[in-house]
Design a binder for these strands. Structure first.
Lengths: 253, 253
DNA sequence: GCCCCGCCTTGATCCAGGTCAACGCAGCAT
DNA sequence: ATGCTGCGTTGACCTGGATCAAGGCGGGGC
């Protein structure tokens, strides 16, 4: 059971930092990746950067969201709170991922910054108009949405059929791969994985309790599948051991 | 544990039944709902009807699918089989729903006919070309994909956080609503719900075992939330009782 | 008719993971 | 330094749903 965070304005709307889209480090992962310079020019005109502190709400459930945005830095979660306080995280958002539900002003899920986060936010009506008018944007959104749908379904397999142990391993693999993708590097044995979130967020993402998460981490440490550095950092001694312990699924995300 | 069905050709490819798209009863729910007559004309030229018997595979996991299709009649399931035989159904497909993964020739999930089913199948390369060239098609696919993504995430909440009892109630509500949508009718107390699938399919959809499904149905019958007619038919005496027992979530599908 | 065979239900038992509770530990304010 | 607070860990115990096992029941073939 947790207290619902108050909806709030971002801790800072960053008007100065109007970086050029062409220099944007995460553009290739974002909805604007197929845009040409003119299209980027237009998007630049309607974008605003928003910064969030860890735990800060980005969009509340059912809120009429005035903007859609792309994660630029940090990690955010997308979750649903049941009336009695149970929570399920239905997605993690990494740089490049879209925040908000296109073509529907009220989001059926709440978005919360997990780490320090930075959003490239677009005015919703203008962005939706741009989507309609710009095939390169609309097509890219379709690609991203189809990929997210595959990912969501993979996660359904984890939630419905995997053991706590397997869930943890799959999660570590996911966290590692998402980080690698941004750095355009390949998984290697012995690599460091940063866990961007608290035990509670992991539990809510995996359909477990914090105690079970904690115990499974201890068990995996003891069995040598992971090497724990501190609560937020671990090493993967053997990638294939990790995947074996993860229930033999295929690529997640 | 179940035996993997053999991939197979549909039991019948129905070349005669080239019904006119304009008369198609489920077109408004399908990917072609925004198409004009010319566009429908083109789709007609590349479509074939395929009929499947209950249990018959439509597309195997990892198979290079030669077609994409729209469910015309019946119900199909989309599922993932883990190496050790555990299965998770990640979606049910009703008339209007798209079968197959656009822009990716190998589907990461298997599709199986649950009831007698009929598919309007399009040659994949031609259909994908049509998607690229036809904004009304592409836009509609985007809408549908965004909706499916919301549904998948709602289902993640069910899988991760709901009790067996709540899962059953949510499932009955889903089955009822999907049927009502096709008939363009509204939910009413006392209405009949047809369960299109076996206990095993329900269990695999809900992340439960058949025994638990069976027991929960008995319990819900005893508590009066449902009235059982036979194994595949039930009544909903009070819609609000059902939703209360379903864990207070919002609209599914 | 009768026997199978697939489903479904029900009962008995088990156990993975939830719940409740205590404690450790780091960061921070006083 | 002290104590507080938020997070994480660990232990003891409990329970919801899984597992194992036995029947029930209806439809189809002979």
């Amino acid at each position: 059971m947790r207290v619902l965070a108050h909806p709030a304005a971002p801790s800072a709307i960053d008007l100065r930092a109007r970086a050029h889209c062409v220099d944007c480090a995460i553009r290739q992962h974002a909805v604007c990746s197929h845009c040409d310079v003119d299209e980027l020019e237009f998007l630049s005109a309607i974008k605003t950067y928003r910064n969030y502190r860890p735990g800060e709400p980005i969009l509340a459930m059912g809120e009429r969201a005035p903007f859609l945005g792309t994660m630029v830095e940090g990690v955010a979660s997308m979750s649903r709170l049941l009336p009695d306080g149970r929570r399920q995280v239905v997605g993690l958002l990494f740089p490049g991922d879209l925040v908000g539900r296109p073509f529907s002003p009220v989001s059926p899920f709440e978005y919360v910054a997990v780490t320090e986060a930075r959003l490239c936010a677009f005015d919703r009506p203008q962005f939706e108009a741009a989507l309609r008018a710009t095939p390169s944007l609309e097509r890219r959104l379709l690609e991203m949405t189809l990929d997210e749908l595959d990912s969501a379904r993979e996660w359904m397999v984890l939630l419905g059929r995997k053991s706590a142990q397997e869930k943890m391993c799959s999660f570590f693999a996911l966290a590692a791969r998402r980080a690698l993708r941004l750095e355009k590097r390949d998984p290697i044995d012995g690599m460091l994985v940063v866990l961007p979130m608290s035990r509670e967020d992991m539990a809510d993402f995996l359909g477990l309790t914090i105690e079970t998460v904690s115990r499974q981490i201890s068990a995996l440490k003891k069995s040598g599948v992971i090497e724990l550095i501190d609560a937020r950092h671990l090493l993967i001694p053997s990638w294939s051991d990790l995947l074996d312990a993860g229930g033999g699924d295929i690529e997640l995300y």
